[in-house]
Amino acid sequence: MIRLILKRLVLGVLTLWLVATLVFLVSGALPGDAAASLLGQDATPATLAALRAQMGLDQPEFIRYWTWLGGILHGNFGISLANGQPVAQVIATRLPNSLMLAGLSALVAIPVSLVLGIASAMKPNSVFDRLTTLLSIIALSTPSFLIATLFVLVLSVWTGWFPALSSVDRVHSLGGLFQVMTLPVLALSLSVIGQMARMTRAILLQQMNEPYVETAVLKGSSGLRAAVLHALPNVAGPIVNASALSLNALISGVVFVEVIFAYPGLTKLMVDSVSNRDLPLMQACALIFCAGFLILVLIADIIAILTNPKLRTA
């Protein structure tokens, strides 16, 4: 088992390296010059050359790649082109906000979708199941920016219950935090719930046809008990995996939610950096998201190994 997990860890590190390379290659592909765009119209050739040298842009691509990679390993993500601050510092102020948003949303979305998924798998084709399925389809077919927009319209513009902008940095009380976070978290969870509830239902439903579930029922256990105590432990791996994939959707959703609620998070920063062509900042943001996501997938993998006695005893 330890060997299996170690293998996953090594593979995870290799994957992260591959991702970093991809990010570097893709983001640096556009011809044109970050130094030129930074200096704008009134750049003289001399200042341009000086800045290029300072930014290391006069080096060949390959050298720049290694310098960049080496910097990351030492926690040095470079200097933001937009405001000249170290990227690591800029990110440090924003990352906690995004983590809080994503974390709170996962905290809402995961239990709700599990309960919905299990409940509809218990009584397939019942009114409840059909309703859940229909709502899930609508939720997962709706772009998250639309969901967020509708939430703003209904819960903020029309009713005025919650603020339309979530300036979380200016909040100091728990109540204030609730005020500010409710809308973004709701909007974000909703799109994830649709996807995850559907997957949970499908995975569980398939498992409910297994003979051992029938055995449990014939021993006298209720359907719910058979589902939760017998079927669920068997699909822990697939469900955790599906959840990890749903979190992919969640991260994508964070982008829009942060933009719409003007939430001071990392994805907002990244979108801005894309618009400003602030490469170092954007590369760092992308890398953090990918790393975060890969870690989630890794955790899902390890949970899958731990919950399977065949792999555990191997």
Partner: peptide, 23 residues
């Protein structure tokens, strides 16, 4: 492995990177 890696990336994030790189 390459395919699994790309597949496990958050697509919106990576699309953003690509848009920045390729226009």
């Amino acid at each position: 492995w390459l395919m699994d890696t790309v597949n496990s990336l958050p697509s919106t994030i990576f699309a953003l990177v690509a848009v920045a790189g390729f226009g």
